[in-house]
Amino acid sequence: MINSSGDEAVGGAVTLGLLAAWALHDAEELVALPGWLRRNVPVLRERFPLVPEAVWRRAEAVDAREFTVAVGVMAAVVASAAAAGRLTGGRSSAYQTALDAFGLHGLVHLAQAGLLRGYTPGAATSPLVVVPFTLWARHRLRRAGVLRPARPRDVALALGLAGAATTVSHAVARRVVGAGRNAGARR
């Protein structure tokens, strides 16, 4: 399909596919993370003694409800980026940055699993879904003539976006779950 500017347009599989690939990946994390943290934080605390104790306490405090809310917040971020990509035929910088962040996020999962020499939540779908989808979508964007040239600052921006979106998602989740706990305590 050719769009009005003469470029090959990218379809929903490339743009909205980001949301679908993300949903598959985060389903793995939703199922695995709470139990994995419970089982592994004590071992990790001993293995990595230079990590501040506050980090381990925060990891132990994440429960399934909070994590589920954080995933829901992130779903809104990813859905917005995917929609922006769809509306612009893949040209949206928000979409392309989110796509890059998703792919880099998958590489981080693989690095974590390698560092820990074992499974970490997200490591199963990263090589099967996250990285292949990202490479395929970038190829389709390039073929359509809409992929921005990759620059080192784009990598930094994508990693920063992923980190910021994760931080905000968890902050919102802590507030929502905490507000629910406080409301229940007042009854």
Rank of each mutant, 00 (worst) to 15 (best):
A111I: 07
P127Q: 14
R148F: 04
R91K: 14
G90C: 13
V41F: 06
G12Q: 14
R45M: 12
R151I: 03
L107Y: 06
L33K: 04
G160I: 04
G6M: 11
G72K: 03
E29S: 06
A27I: 04
L50D: 13
R86P: 00
T120W: 01
V78S: 02
S5L: 14
N40F: 06
E66L: 15
P42Q: 09
A59I: 00
L104R: 07
R39P: 05
M74P: 00
Y119P: 00
E60W: 01
V43D: 08
F48A: 05
R65K: 15
E60A: 13
G90W: 11
T125G: 02
L104G: 07
R45P: 06
G72T: 04
L147A: 15
H170R: 06
M1F: 08
G184I: 05
F102Y: 15
E29R: 08
T166A: 15
A21Y: 07
E29I: 15
F133D: 01
T166D: 10
N182C: 04
R181M: 01
R86K: 12
G11V: 13
V71H: 03
V71D: 03
E8W: 07
G85W: 05
A75M: 07
V130A: 11
A101Q: 06
A111T: 08
V55T: 02
A59P: 01
L104Y: 13
G114F: 08
G106P: 02
L135Q: 11
E8G: 08
M74I: 08
I2M: 13
V55I: 02
R186A: 14
W36T: 12
S80G: 15
G103H: 05
G163I: 07
A20W: 04
A9M: 11
V10N: 05
E66N: 06
T125C: 05
L107S: 03
G180W: 10
Q96W: 05
I2G: 08
S92E: 12
R140W: 01
V131M: 06
H170W: 04
L30W: 02
F67G: 00
L33R: 08
G180C: 09
A84W: 04
L99N: 09
L116C: 09
G17R: 02
T88C: 08
S5W: 11
S4F: 06
V176S: 14
T166S: 15
S169P: 02
H109T: 03
R39A: 15
L107F: 09
S92F: 10
G145R: 12
L128F: 06
S169Q: 05
A124C: 03
A162K: 07
R117T: 00
L115E: 00
T15H: 08
V131T: 02
S5T: 10
L37Q: 09
V176D: 13
